[in-house]
Every structure is written in C-alpha cells, then in structure tokens.
Design a protein around this nucleic acid. Structure first.
Length: 105
DNA sequence: GTTGGGGCCGTCA
DNA sequence: CTGACGGCCCCAA
C-alpha cells in the first residue's frame, strides 16, 4: 500500500455533503505530506472512485485544476451534494469532515 | 489583511 | 541515483 493508495482510500471515504482539507489528509497519513497528497490526487487514476472535489485547501477554497477539468465542475458537484459554495470556497466550520484514523487501517 | 519566502513528502523523468 | 515539480501549508514582514 503506497502513500498514494492511502490517499485515494481516505478520499474515497469522505461522505457526501462533507469536505476535507489536504492538511487533514496529510495529518492522518503522515506528519506533513500535503505535497504528496496533492500529487496523488493529481494522478487520480479513478476520478469516479476518488472524489477529489471534496478535497479543499486550508482556506476551504477549491483548487485551480482538478482531474475533472475545472473548479466550476467541482463547485457544481459540491452544491449538488448539499455543500454551499461561495466564491469557490466552502464553510469548513460546517462541512469539514472529521477524519477517522481507522479508515486506512 | 496581504504578500513573500522556506520547507515538508512523494512521484516521475 | 539525482534533480525537478506539484492541485500545499505555515510563519514572518
């Protein structure tokens, strides 16, 4: 199980209507591997299995380029799931997903 | 509040 | 094996 695989696994565990940050994922997988996390999602071999649109940065803002093509698609998906997006940013206080460490165990 | 610079981890060429 | 890049994050001016 490589780091990338773990990232996919964790991201796939994100429930609908919730979002997570690169920092949170990195915090679960390692200490500070947010770089690797972004890289992993960039590869994103299975966008259907890996909802990278539910992954945002610390500011709750959407990324510039996603495997889907553009951030507008990501925003649409989030709103479709019940997550209200304003100015390409989500309310982390409400939609931030509490990552469970056991998910990749 | 905004901008700039440094540093972490992993993968690919 | 070494070098470079990335959808980042944090701290200091």
């Amino acid at each position: 199980m490589t780091f990338t695989e773990q990232v996919y696994h964790v991201v796939s565990q994100i429930p609908s209507g919730k979002v997570s940050t690169y920092g949170q994922i990195a915090e679960v997988l390692g200490n500070s591997a947010y770089r690797a996390v972004g890289n992993a999602l960039h590869n994103n071999p299975s966008p259907d299995k890996t909802p990278c649109h539910r992954v945002v940065n610390s500011q709750g803002g959407l990324a510039k380029k996603f495997a889907f093509g553009s951030s507008d698609a990501q925003r649409a998906l989030l709103e479709q799931e019940g997550v209200k997006v304003s100015d390409n940013k989500v309310d982390l206080n409400k939609y931030l997903w509490q990552i469970d460490v056991k998910i990749f165990k």
